[in-house]
């Protein structure tokens, strides 16, 4: 047997530096922000910066969890690959943003401390990202709204005073551009595909649209340390309207989802779906406190 060596070389448990690039964050991922100065710049409030990073990081983490739920359930293999890809991008952003939050607030909490050991009311994501996946049309509609808003936000944040947030945003701009392209391509296919697909796409948009408002409404932390989402409203709505017009779909004329006593996701007041999502995400880590994985 002459081709033993191929496998034998694989079986040697040697560290393989050339392999690092194959993985989303390498196999030895320790510091996602390597090479970026992690001191909070003077003039920025660490607590506010941390709160802002949590908002953006939680959005990315929770939507990534929803995208992951599509795995082995997608309508076609190409979509398996693409949806996993989008989930990986968002998971990567979440890891960087949560790590930054743990640095900026001085607590030294890691990405995993923040993802696995916070309670539901401590999560700061908008309700849009936690809503259950629904059908493919609903998931695409949600992705279209999220990627349009988040892409515009990252563009604005690429010049942020915090070099870490600026670096995450600069990288995220390219990723979100792809997410938006993917969501747009499917909105067009479903909207201008069969009469049945058009109906489902419209239903998905109608159902998800009330959740857009929260993403475009400023929280005080955003006004102090981030970008006022109100400045994104006009370009975002224009861009969405253009996509829907090309797809032959109507821009839903529906009011935003009400808050609870003035509070919503950014204040830690979520929907019923959030508790179940976190129960699943956190269950194993919490069953083994102190364990390393």
């Amino acid at each position: 047997m002459t081709d033993d060596h191929v496998y034998l070389s694989l079986a040697e448990a040697s560290p393989e530096p050339e392999g690092e690039g194959r993985w989303a964050y390498g196999t030895g991922f320790a510091d996602p922000l390597l090479g970026v100065d992690t001191a909070v710049p003077p003039g920025l409030d660490g607590a506010d910066l941390a709160a802002y990073c949590l908002m953006l990081g939680d959005d990315a983490l929770v939507l990534s969890q929803r995208l992951i739920e599509w795995c082995t359930r997608a309508p076609e293999l190409e979509e398996e690959v693409a949806l996993a890809n989008l989930g990986l991008d968002l998971l990567g952003q979440a890891r960087q943003l949560l790590t930054r939050a743990g640095q900026a607030d001085g607590s030294g909490r890691t990405e995993d401390d923040l993802a696995y050991w916070r309670e539901e009311h401590e999560f700061r994501n908008v309700r849009l990202v936690e809503a259950p996946n629904g059908d493919f049309a609903y998931s695409i509609a949600r992705l279209l709204l999220f990627s349009t808003v988040r892409g515009a936000l990252y563009e604005a944040l690429a010049g942020h005073a915090d070099p870490v947030l600026a670096a995450v945003a600069a990288r995220g701009v390219k990723e979100l551009a792809y997410h938006r392209e993917y969501a747009t391509a499917w909105t067009l296919r479903l909207g201008d595909g069969t009469p049945y697909s058009a109906e489902r796409m419209q239903a998905g948009l109608d159902a998800v649209w009330p959740l857009l408002e929260e993403l475009l409404t400023a929280h005080p932390v955003e006004l102090r340390v981030g970008v006022d989402p109100a400045t994104l409203r006009e370009p975002v709505l224009r861009s969405l309207a253009a996509v829907l017009a090309e797809a032959g779909l109507a821009v839903p004329d529906v009011p935003g989802l009400a808050t609870v006593g003035g509070r919503a996701g950014r204040d830690g007041v979520h929907s019923e779906a959030m508790g179940l999502l976190l129960a699943e995400l956190q269950v194993l880590a919490r069953a083994h406190p102190g364990a390393t994985w």
């Binding site: 964050y25 890891r95 699943e280 194993l284 880590a285 994985w293």
Partner: peptide
């Protein structure tokens, strides 16, 4: 959906 660290999940 239950991977016990974000690195393992990725």
């Amino acid at each position: 959906t239950r991977a016990p660290s974000l690195r393992r999940k990725a």
